[in-house]
Design a protein around this nucleic acid. Structure first.
Lengths: 151, 151
DNA sequence: TTTTGTGCAAATTCTTTGCAGACAC
DNA sequence: GTGTCTGCAAAGAATTTGCACAAAA
């Protein structure tokens, strides 16, 4: 459920403007990078890509800008034990399926029972969910297939 | 869904024995501590408690033993961005509801739609879930009530 | 006795912070 | 102009690791 990169970019920029943040060249470039990103890059990967175009950019700026966009709810942080990944292409909370074999991170979009789960939690515990983080570790289709082949 | 502490303790000890690990006094004490723990302590909290009884114990040993029990599937690690919590009282995967207001971590036991969600993910993506980690950040019942009272 | 576990301290790694200079507005 | 943002380097914090000694089997 990846939204249109151009729309994403415009949203990110306008969110920064709305909150009164300044549009520096590095922020604009990061917003663009996040909008077109397909995977789930970490701060270091975004830094390396951005540095090609802006050799003077620093990792600290990446973290600071990501924190800004995270606070605006425009970037999701996937918390992987000391290697946070950022999902800025799809701003809607969704499960992430992480293959323990190949490391791939798959977006679990269009899972119907998520809504039901949320309802059940909210009604059963009176808990108001603001930010779900659902990570499913396991084996992806391809890795299962290659394991089956071997044994 | 807290299981009987005594049963839990015996399970932890026998799992360590089965894998050929030695039963040192520190490991036995940690197993006991984990079995009776009500909340979701982090390594440092377990360390502080254990140090009362065993002043010579080290934090490294806590981490090493937790890793052992985690590998045996007897302890769940809740990955909270640089503050891992350990749930050893309830070895079955279950969601954790974390209140962003008071910090409380509630066990989301007996959520029926979890099974449905797992099935949907497995059938839709051909993904075999081995270890789900579902963390729901939000507002607990009590904090919602006190916010409502204020206005 | 032999192998595994332990404490200690240093190393590692991701992330945050303080500050003087740079830049958007 | 002025208040925010930046890079840099250093600080921070949780966890892991290497090694000589200690303890379990």
């Amino acid at each position: 459920m990846k939204t249109d990169p151009e729309l994403r970019y415009k949203t990110l920029i306008s969110k920064l403007q709305q909150r009164g943040s300044r549009l520096t060249s590095h922020r604009i470039a990061l917003a663009r990078l996040i909008s077109v990103s397909e995977g789930h890059p970490n701060a270091s990967q975004l830094f390396k890509k951005l540095r090609i175009q802006f050799p003077s950019v620093s990792l600290a700026t990446i973290y600071k800008t990501l924190a800004l966009l995270k606070a605006e709810g425009e970037v999701l942080e996937i918390d992987l034990h000391g290697d946070s990944r950022y999902d800025g292409a799809n701003p809607f909370p969704h499960p992430h399926l992480i293959c323990e074999c190949c490391g791939m991170i798959l977006d679990g979009d269009e899972i119907k029972s998520i809504g039901e789960l949320n309802n059940e939690i909210e009604s059963k515990y009176g808990f108001q969910i603001t930010r779900p983080q659902q990570i499913f570790y396991g084996l992806c289709k391809d890795c299962r297939a290659s394991i089956d082949k071997k044994g």
